[in-house]
Simulated scan of single mutants.
Amino acid sequence: MTGNGPQAASGQLAIEARGLVKRFEGVTAVDGVDLAVPSGSVYGILGPNGAGKTTTLRMMLGIIDPDSGYRRILGAERPHDVAHAIGYLPEERGLYPSMKATEAIAFLGALRGLPLREGRRRAHELLERHGLGHAASRQIRQLSKGMAQQVQILGTLVHRPRLVVFDEPFSGLDALNQGRLEAMMRGLAEEGTTVIFSTHVIAHAERLCDEVAIIAGGKVPFAGPVDLARDRIPAQVRLETRAADGPWRLALPAEARREGQFWHFALPDTGIEPLLRALIAGEAGILSLSIERAGLHDAFVAIAGAAAARALGDQTPEEMAR
């Protein structure tokens, strides 16, 4: 897990939102969202497309105002008062095609108050550090889509913000550059920067996040540590025995099911030790026994419902394991 930077230890909140509501033409896009993002953490807003993730981020950043509710960002009730300390990568990417990569990064920094000269210096440094030094003098239109997106990500960071907000940052990146972005986000949190990102890809949230907010239909049925979300589902036991039957069978939970040579059931509330003693005493002949915690995908299904999980589209436990 990440989020061990100096700010994380303080217990302060980088973002606090209570009861945020936003309607568009009579349709409620966000319906009473509460969020509390600890400083120095990596925080994910997880949900399918159309769930209200982007609208929630835009309200917190002051791009749009909520119809009702309260928000505080980096201690300020007016987001624009701390805009210079925030880096924001919108879902809709956009750079001037004729700008060179260095100038594009410096320009994005200038929008947050960074002098252009310093922005150019930092841009060169960032491009070299992230393996894009060869692209420094190339125009955006000459770059691949993935490279252009990396340039915009660097432009989001060039002014060294205290809070970085990414809206679907992994879209358009290949697997290699997704991994690089994940490493960058971890590094930011380790330095004390708060990172919040929206995603419909559960694997990214499970690998990166200290805490998540699960959003579906404009509501947040869960917000908190990833481990707490996973604990909504009991750990699962997989048992293989030498004996096919015997008095030890009485020790298995009533809902235990057999698939092939394995028994599957939820870990009893009493823990595994009493079960082990009963299996040994009953001469079950334990060949293998494993306890597997629920993944975030299963937790998402339990919390948000199967329909919301299906709306994620491409997420399965097998894909999460890749």
Rank of each mutant, 00 (worst) to 15 (best):
A110L: 10
T54E: 08
P169D: 13
P48R: 12
I63V: 15
R129T: 05
V158Y: 02
G146M: 02
Q142G: 09
Y43E: 08
R58N: 15
A51M: 08
I86S: 06
Y43I: 06
E77S: 12
S68P: 00
R71F: 04
E118H: 01
M185G: 14
R122T: 09
S144H: 04
N177T: 09
T55L: 01
M99P: 00
Q150L: 02
T102Y: 00
L74F: 07
S68D: 14
P169F: 12
Q150W: 03
S171R: 10
G87K: 10
G179N: 15
L132W: 00
L188I: 09
G44N: 11
A183G: 11
V151Q: 01
M147Y: 00
R72G: 08
I140Q: 04
S98Q: 12
L114T: 08
L126E: 00
S68L: 07
H80P: 00
M185H: 10
E182Y: 02
G75Q: 12
L163D: 07
R138H: 05
S41I: 08
T56K: 08
L108Y: 09
D67N: 14
E168P: 04
Q152V: 03
V164R: 07
G133L: 01
G113C: 10
H130D: 00
V164D: 09
Q150I: 00
A148T: 05
R141H: 10
I63D: 04
Q139A: 14
P161S: 09
G44D: 11
I86A: 13
G109K: 06
R78T: 15
G40H: 10
V151S: 02
I64K: 14
L46N: 06
A110T: 15
M60Y: 01
H124N: 06
G179M: 14
D67P: 03
D81N: 14
G131R: 00
I45A: 10
G50A: 13
T102Q: 04
G47V: 13
L57G: 05
F170N: 07
L126A: 04
A101G: 03
L163H: 10
